[in-house]
Structures are given as C-alpha cells and as structure tokens.
Computed example of a mutant assay.
Amino acid sequence: MYGEQDGWRRDGFESHEGMVGVLLADGSEPGPVFFDLGSGATFHESSDWWHYDGTFRRPTATSMRGRCACGWRGTKTYVIDWEKVREDDDPDAYDTSGPYRDWKAHLDEVAERAVALPEDLASLLGQVREQLDRLWLEENKTRAYATMLKACDALEAIVAETGPEAARALTREQDDEDGSTPSVAEALGMTERAARTRLLHYEHLTWH
C-alpha cells in the first residue's frame, strides 16, 4: 500500500478510521498543521503526514506509524525519507504499507472482540442487498424504484421497532455496571464516541 490522502476504512468499522501518524525527533506526536488561507481569521488544519516536512516553519517529522481514530497508535515506527518524498513530488508515491499493515492488524483485533452477526442473519441481510441491487437492472424503472422504496419502508419499520428497545436495554445494562461505554463500544466494534452517538440515535428513533 502506498500513501493515500484519504483515511483507511473497513466496512462495519467506519469509526475506526486509520491513517499515517508521525513522530518528531524527540518521539513526540505533533498537533495539526495550520494553514493561513488569506481570508481573515480562516485557517485550515491538517494532520496529513506529508505536511510535516519542515517547510514554512512546520514541524519536521522523522518517522511514521499507524494510528486510529480510537486513539490507538502503532508501536512500530518507520523512518521518513524526505528526499525520496520530494524527489517523487507525490505523497501517494511514498510507501506507507508498514503503518497500514499495523493498523489493519489493530482492526483485526477490534473485529475479533466485536459481536459477530449470526451467519443466517448476515446471509439474509446480504440477500436483501442483492435483491435491491437487482432492481436497478429492471426495465420498468418506475416499478423498480417503487419496489425499492416499499422495501425501505419495511426495513425502517423493523429498525424502528427493534432499535430503540435494544439501545435502551444496552443503556440500562451499562448504567448497571459503571456508567461508561467501553464494553458497548467494543461489542459494536466502534469508538466510544461513535457508540454513544449510535445509542442516542436509536433510543430516540421513531417511525410513522
């Protein structure tokens, strides 16, 4: 894997977005880099690794490592060859496979701790998606789109009936423990912030 300007993501674990993190010579992790866009008090910030090249008084990173939105940081570091980066003049051309592999291993561990859907349920959901995808190929577009919407109505009704009670039950269970969300977040394969947002979303979900 070579440098990607977008973060690394895995289906079902979107809140665990990964990317290349950097370290300075003293081993510290720098904060975001700010750019003056020349429009008053408007500033743009970025944590993309290639911006820590020492130009325009920016910090100079000496090494990179994998990092995740959940706070995880890879223990293995990889030296950055800035001469190579400048020679290619393209961040995407620089090899970041090491940090990516480490983040991927981290996501594998997250996935192992998360609750897995039963095979029959996962299969049913997959069949629903396949059936809906096939509708795009029908010649009678009006009928196909109407069928899609009716299917969505049925799915939303199921979610509205099941989601709120499941979310409230999880919230009650977590309150009975210690009032925190780590166990729920782990079961859902999410960061704690994403898990709290998901619980609130379903707790107050209504369908008419």
Rank of each mutant, 00 (worst) to 15 (best):
A144Q: 09
L155C: 12
V115E: 10
S28N: 06
L107C: 08
G126T: 07
A116N: 07
D53W: 05
L121H: 10
L135A: 03
H16C: 07
D89A: 15
E173R: 12
R86D: 03
E14F: 12
L205R: 15
Y145H: 05
Q5C: 02
W207S: 07
G179T: 11
R196S: 06
E109I: 01
G3S: 12
T191L: 05
A154G: 04
E17C: 09
G12A: 10
T206H: 10
E203F: 01
A160L: 12
R172E: 13
W72H: 04
M19W: 15
Q174I: 08
A160W: 06
W103F: 15
E109F: 00
E173L: 13
G126Y: 07
F35W: 14
F56T: 01
G163E: 09
E112H: 07
C152I: 14
V20E: 09
A157N: 06
E192N: 10
K104G: 05
D88W: 09
A157W: 06
L135E: 11
F43Q: 15
R65S: 10
G163I: 09
M190C: 06
E14V: 03
Q174D: 12
D11P: 00
R134Y: 00
S15I: 05
I80P: 07
L125F: 11
T171G: 01
L37S: 04
I80T: 00
L124V: 10
P182G: 03
T181A: 11
W49C: 04
D26H: 14
W49I: 01
R67F: 07
D92S: 14
E165W: 11
G3C: 12
G54I: 00
G189L: 02
H106S: 08
M1W: 03
R196F: 02
A151Q: 14
D178P: 10
T62L: 02
R172Y: 09
S46V: 06
E112D: 12
R168G: 11
L199T: 04
F34D: 11
R86E: 04
P30V: 04
N140Q: 14
L117I: 01
L155Q: 13
Q174H: 09
A25E: 15
S123G: 08
V128H: 04
L121S: 03
K76R: 14
C68D: 15
D81H: 13
S47R: 11
T75R: 05
W207F: 14
R143T: 14
T62D: 06
H201V: 03
E186G: 10
P99C: 10
R58P: 13
R86I: 00
V85I: 04
P99Q: 06
P118L: 03
F34I: 02
R58C: 05
S28G: 06
G27N: 08
D95E: 08
E192V: 06
H16N: 07
R9K: 15
A185E: 06
A195V: 04
G12K: 02
V115G: 01
Y94E: 04
V159R: 15
A116P: 00
A114N: 03
E112I: 05
A167Y: 06
A122K: 07
R57M: 05
G71I: 04
P32F: 11
T77F: 03
W103P: 11
C70Y: 10
G66K: 00
T142F: 02
A111P: 00
D36P: 09
C68P: 13
G66F: 03
H16V: 04
E4L: 06
T191A: 07
W50C: 02
S46C: 13
S97H: 01
G18R: 02
T181R: 08
G31I: 01
A122T: 01
A167S: 13
S15L: 06
K104M: 12
R58W: 11
